[in-house]
Design a protein around this nucleic acid. Sequence first.
DNA 1: TTCCTAATGTGATAAAAATCACATAAGACC
DNA 2: GGTCTTATGTGATTTTTATCACATTAGGAA
Lengths: 218, 218
Amino acid sequence: MTTEELKTYLPEFTDPRLLETLLEKGQVMNLEPGKVLMEPGKFVKMVPIVLEGSIKVMRMDEDGKELFLYYLDAGETCALSLTCCSAARPSEIKAVVEEPTTIIAIPVSLHEQLTDEFKQWKDFVSETYQSRFHEMLVALDAVAFKRMDERLMRYIVTKMKQHKTNELNTTHQEIANELGTSREVISRLLKQLEKKKWIELGRNVIYIRDDFEELISK
Amino acid sequence: MTTEELKTYLPEFTDPRLLETLLEKGQVMNLEPGKVLMEPGKFVKMVPIVLEGSIKVMRMDEDGKELFLYYLDAGETCALSLTCCSAARPSEIKAVVEEPTTIIAIPVSLHEQLTDEFKQWKDFVSETYQSRFHEMLVALDAVAFKRMDERLMRYIVTKMKQHKTNELNTTHQEIANELGTSREVISRLLKQLEKKKWIELGRNVIYIRDDFEELISK
DNA sequence: TTCCTAATGTGATAAAAATCACATAAGACC
DNA sequence: GGTCTTATGTGATTTTTATCACATTAGGAA
């Protein structure tokens, strides 16, 4: 990959020396759906910056129950990998690839150095912390203040926007896992949405009708 | 206040120039319990570093419902004020003083400058992000994965340790607010804890028996 | 002391979620 | 087509939490 190419992925980095350094020391990787980038307890050895595609970030509790937190989109990185690695602490979250994704993996040691040397990197890190904090608060709001029906609707819209489709290929069980509830609850709530003509259900698929998104955005 | 004094509060800052700059540009303030330092929607104009005492940080939803997040203790600062102010965004949280507290308020503009100039400040900011992120995850775990009885017990222990006492002066209503539930729920759960001989209830007071903390720490 | 207010106690009921227990269906594979 | 696995549908029940409706009480103020 050339610095010019990298620049198109990360337009906020215009400093040629920063781009060169990233390319030289970082490693561009193509990841397939299903790839687990980070798991609770494992040590983080690199900071992944998403160039194309996205990475799903989840929290897990002791008994393996999951909770969807947010997506890392193109141009974003994981605040937790920034903090975990600089303190040499194990990961507190799980990161999974859901669609074909390209990242550039920055070694932990380089991150420290970049922070000292490049204002654009420092701003990038600051921006990352800010947006991840915000996403965490959104996730917290959902579990603290919203009922499951609303959480499910938001979840569907999030996935829709994320994958730029009105057709989700997933199972009720998987949704239940990501929302930290049981399959039956999700099945029943989805049925309700279908009755309201907002979605249509098939095996392994949920079609989202056009009126649904309008309804949510209000 | 002298730089020597400031150093005793913030032992990780040994650089005399950093300490001088903080004292010169920052403002030491004594805050009384009840003082609201930050509110959702208001703009943040300074970064408060706690020197003595503590600050309670809470999330609020649209209808004013609250949720306790964590305490900022001596030597700590608010990650959200760091992010909010550098982006000139309104606060997403509420910060309240619960015990007599001394802070040093650093102007937003200075923070940027300090980051460039002092490695110790940079590390401090990084450490802050890290610990606040961790606290957020702990708060998230509670609402996502724990039942109210366990959340209440953890809440009591947290307050106990925070105020270094085995006697909490608070009302059931206040606890309910901070845990995002209703007063009746808390009253009933407290009664259960009393029946188990872990606490004793009075008007405006909860005495925590010695066996309780042992029980929790396991 | 008496009165008043805020705090607490508690039954009854409703609502939301979780769990159990199957029935049914859809699609893969032979 | 038949068989099998996995996904979905759904009733019944339980658990947890929320809400409503009061009774009771503690402690401050007059």
